[in-house]
Design a binder for these strands. Sequence first.
DNA 1: CTTAATTTGTCCGTATGTATG
DNA 2: ACATACATACGGACAAATTAA
Lengths: 212, 212
Amino acid sequence: MEETKPSRKMFLEIVQELRTLIRNENIRTGEKLPSERVLAERLGAGRSTIREALRSLELLGLIETRRGEGTFLSDYRQHQLVDVLAAFIMQEPKSLEDVRLTMQIHEKDAVQRAAAGPEIRELPLWDSLEAAVSSDRPVRREDIIREILVAAGNRLSLKIWYLLNAYAKTPYEGDAEPPERPVIREMILAIKNGNSAAAADAYTRWAGMVHG
Amino acid sequence: MEETKPSRKMFLEIVQELRTLIRNENIRTGEKLPSERVLAERLGAGRSTIREALRSLELLGLIETRRGEGTFLSDYRQHQLVDVLAAFIMQEPKSLEDVRLTMQIHEKDAVQRAAAGPEIRELPLWDSLEAAVSSDRPVRREDIIREILVAAGNRLSLKIWYLLNAYAKTPYEGDAEPPERPVIREMILAIKNGNSAAAADAYTRWAGMVHG
DNA sequence: CTTAATTTGTCCGTATGTATG
DNA sequence: ACATACATACGGACAAATTAA
């Protein structure tokens, strides 16, 4: 009989142990993980099993492996999973609708939160955003929203939004069209004035313009 | 020279080829895929490489493997990817405050959404919830919130909330104390009346009572 | 009930391409 | 140029679980 795991699949255990290892060793994004052979010895598993776990995380875009160099903790924004998941899942309209709605939940909250606090709504960011949408230069919708989420300061919410955006990758592609610009400008002004309700209202109308 | 692409990683090619194989063979959810050895021969790769691709898809929840039986195409509608991704998101210097705030984002949206749609706010659920908080019996805060999230109908949002709630531990543990009950009742009544703003306001006050 | 065949689970050995010093 | 370290990929071997004869 073995010493520990009567429970699960080995490679899932490895995935879990890799997570705790990354946390304990305090490995940051871009830094290197131990080699496969070292991991095999430390975690008490064969190289094949280690590789299966590593490949799974690679497909998710959580790590990046470079031949001859090693395995590196990747930036979660690397949406390699999108192509794969899109092929398998994207036919499901219900799921996509949930993703879209959930993105809007976080976006709307960020808009409201930005207007609520003086330390956020007095940032110079809003002046530059207003200037951008008031100009004739093309402005990407995604950039505007991301800036607002960053300014709002909830990093967890920002990360969730990143993942959902990579997953859906249609809602806010492209530039803000001329008809949208007055609404966006209204939203920014409401934030600067600290009118949270008006900002949320303008955001809702904008979101309604982008996707029916 | 090879027939296709010597450039990309083999196991990613296998993932791609598995997708076309599933489509061509018209394999439905729950049905069985060819065995690993058969796949290795048909796709011209070693069994280890086939397994790496299969495990990746398994971690994504796209397939399910049962020892001694085989590999089966699973129901991909479950957002299992959120579990894995969330586990890795959380590894960072996570401020518990962000977790708490992000939970409230989803909760508040569910409350507003419930009040917005007639098909939701007319559910018998609200009557039973109102009766529960009006009685003297203990009512768990967590149960109330979960019911509202379920009623709101965004399954992805619910899933994210589950994860955050499990991670934050103790945000809404325990029963709704007597001082909270009038506010909760006010929130429920606002939902039933379709007053989205009042419902959101009552929720905010309730959340402020629970954690300072 | 026993036996055999099939399939996944796991590990090992080997060869090769690639990057670093 | 050479040696080292690492990922890449293949194939073999055996264990464990399931199914069917």
